[in-house]
Amino acid sequence: MEDNKNKLAFGKRNYIIMLVGIVVIAIGFIIMTMDDEQYGLGFMGITLGPIVVVLGFIIEFFAILVKDKTNE
């Protein structure tokens, strides 16, 4: 019989990258709330925050697609 001790969908590396992506997304939302302009219509609320959030989603997408070497 083959050893199937690792039954998780992803490896440890994938989960670490996913956690990094979640932290980046949270930082992006925090940046959006820190804008001093009324209704968040300044640079941080309209430009910087959403760019950081999209970067976090790209990291999440990468975390799903990367193949973990221990999960082969």
Rank of each mutant, 00 (worst) to 15 (best):
residue 51 I to W: 11
residue 44 M to Q: 13
residue 24 V to A: 01
residue 41 L to Y: 14
residue 2 E to D: 13
residue 46 I to C: 04
residue 65 L to A: 11
residue 36 D to M: 14
residue 38 Q to Y: 12
residue 4 N to E: 11
residue 44 M to T: 13
residue 6 N to K: 11
residue 36 D to L: 13
residue 8 L to T: 13
residue 9 A to K: 12
residue 18 M to I: 11
residue 48 L to K: 11
residue 12 K to E: 03
residue 17 I to Y: 13
residue 23 V to H: 06
residue 36 D to P: 15
residue 44 M to H: 13
residue 39 Y to D: 02
residue 39 Y to Q: 03
residue 69 K to P: 03
residue 15 Y to F: 05
residue 72 E to Y: 10
residue 23 V to T: 04
residue 28 G to Q: 01
residue 33 T to Q: 02
residue 8 L to I: 02
residue 33 T to P: 03
residue 4 N to V: 12
residue 71 N to I: 09
residue 21 G to A: 06
residue 28 G to T: 01
residue 48 L to N: 09
residue 52 V to F: 11
residue 62 F to S: 09
residue 49 G to V: 09
residue 19 L to P: 07
residue 43 F to S: 06
residue 39 Y to E: 00
residue 42 G to D: 08
residue 10 F to K: 05
residue 11 G to T: 02
residue 44 M to C: 06
residue 53 V to H: 10
residue 5 K to V: 08
residue 31 I to L: 02
residue 65 L to K: 15
residue 30 I to T: 04
residue 55 L to R: 06
residue 18 M to H: 08
residue 40 G to Y: 13
residue 66 V to D: 04
residue 41 L to P: 07
residue 8 L to P: 04
residue 62 F to L: 15
residue 38 Q to G: 05
residue 12 K to N: 01
residue 61 F to Y: 15
residue 18 M to A: 07
residue 59 I to R: 07
residue 48 L to V: 06
residue 38 Q to A: 12
residue 21 G to M: 05
residue 42 G to L: 09
residue 42 G to V: 08
residue 2 E to Y: 11
residue 46 I to F: 07
residue 6 N to D: 10
residue 60 E to N: 12
residue 45 G to Y: 08
residue 72 E to A: 04
residue 61 F to T: 13
residue 43 F to H: 07
residue 36 D to N: 15
residue 32 M to Y: 05
residue 44 M to E: 10
residue 33 T to W: 08
residue 69 K to G: 00
residue 13 R to H: 09
residue 34 M to L: 10
residue 28 G to S: 00
residue 63 A to M: 05
residue 67 K to V: 09
residue 70 T to K: 11
residue 50 P to F: 13
residue 3 D to P: 12
residue 25 I to Y: 03
residue 15 Y to Q: 06
residue 41 L to A: 09
residue 16 I to S: 02
residue 20 V to L: 10
residue 14 N to W: 10
residue 6 N to T: 07
residue 53 V to R: 11
residue 9 A to T: 12
residue 27 I to S: 00
residue 22 I to T: 02
residue 11 G to A: 02
residue 34 M to Q: 12
residue 27 I to G: 00
residue 22 I to V: 03
residue 4 N to G: 03
residue 42 G to W: 10
residue 7 K to I: 14
residue 54 V to P: 12
residue 27 I to N: 01
residue 28 G to M: 03
residue 17 I to H: 07
residue 36 D to E: 15
residue 57 F to G: 00
residue 24 V to P: 00
residue 50 P to R: 09
residue 33 T to C: 01
residue 61 F to A: 08
residue 58 I to G: 07
residue 62 F to Q: 11
residue 11 G to M: 03
residue 30 I to L: 04
residue 33 T to E: 07
residue 27 I to Y: 01
residue 1 M to F: 14
